[in-house]
Amino acid sequence: MPTEARTLGGLCADRPRRFPSHRAGTRANMSPQAMGEFVDELEELGYVVRRPDPTDRRAKLITLTSKGQACIAAGIATIDGIEQQLTARLGERGHAQLRSLLAKLLEDG
């Protein structure tokens, strides 16, 4: 579920924590249909709500709920803990090298 987690995290990246769903789909490299289904699921689970966009009657804005914000905070705390463990085991330089190598792998597809 990496794409879904990244998409939910993307909702947190923009202020005021909302943006049109088609923009979220573009960021996640998802089709509009897949994005709509995913947002439906997030809404059913209570992580987001959809509201009309006051500037565009055709669009909906997706807003994180407090449950969605708590999910993001828990994810960030988990990642921070992993980062600290990596630094403790590899040292600052080794951790930086690992990040660089992983980024290269992601770039290469």
Rank of each mutant, 00 (worst) to 15 (best):
H22V: 11
G46M: 05
I76H: 08
G81M: 10
Y47D: 00
P16K: 12
R50L: 05
A28W: 00
A70M: 11
A74D: 06
M35C: 12
M35K: 06
A59D: 08
E41F: 06
C12V: 10
L106K: 14
Q85H: 09
T87N: 08
D108F: 11
E37Q: 15
E37K: 14
L64C: 03
R93S: 12
I62Y: 00
L105G: 14
P52N: 12
A77T: 13
G109M: 06
G10P: 01
E37Y: 13
L101W: 13
P54R: 08
Q97L: 14
A24F: 05
G94A: 07
L64A: 02
D14L: 13
E92G: 02
E107N: 11
D53Q: 07
L64P: 02
T3E: 02
H22E: 04
L61K: 04
I79C: 09
A5L: 13
K60D: 04
G91K: 12
D80V: 15
I79G: 06
G91S: 06
Q69K: 11
D40Y: 05
C71N: 03
G46D: 01
R99I: 12
G75K: 04
A24V: 14
T78Q: 10
L64N: 01
S66F: 09
L11M: 08
D14V: 15
G68D: 00
K67I: 10
L105T: 13
Q69V: 10
F38L: 13
P16F: 04
R58E: 04
K104M: 13
Q97C: 09
L90F: 15
R93E: 12
D14Q: 12
L8R: 09
T78N: 08
G10V: 03
I76C: 03
A88V: 08
K104A: 14
P54Q: 05
P52K: 13
R18L: 05
I79N: 08
S21L: 10
D108T: 15
Q33G: 05
L98W: 06
G81H: 12
G36D: 00
G10E: 02
L90V: 13
L42F: 06
L90H: 14
A34F: 07
L11S: 01
P32L: 08
S100M: 10
E107Y: 09
R18P: 01
L42I: 03
K67R: 14
S21E: 04
Q33T: 15
M30Y: 08
Q69E: 14
Q85Y: 09
L90N: 07
G10W: 09
Q33W: 08
L61P: 01
L11Q: 01
T63I: 10
G81F: 09
T7N: 02
L102F: 14
L86G: 07
Q33E: 09
L106F: 12
E43N: 07
I76N: 04
C71R: 12
Q33H: 13
V48P: 00
I72A: 01
G46Q: 03
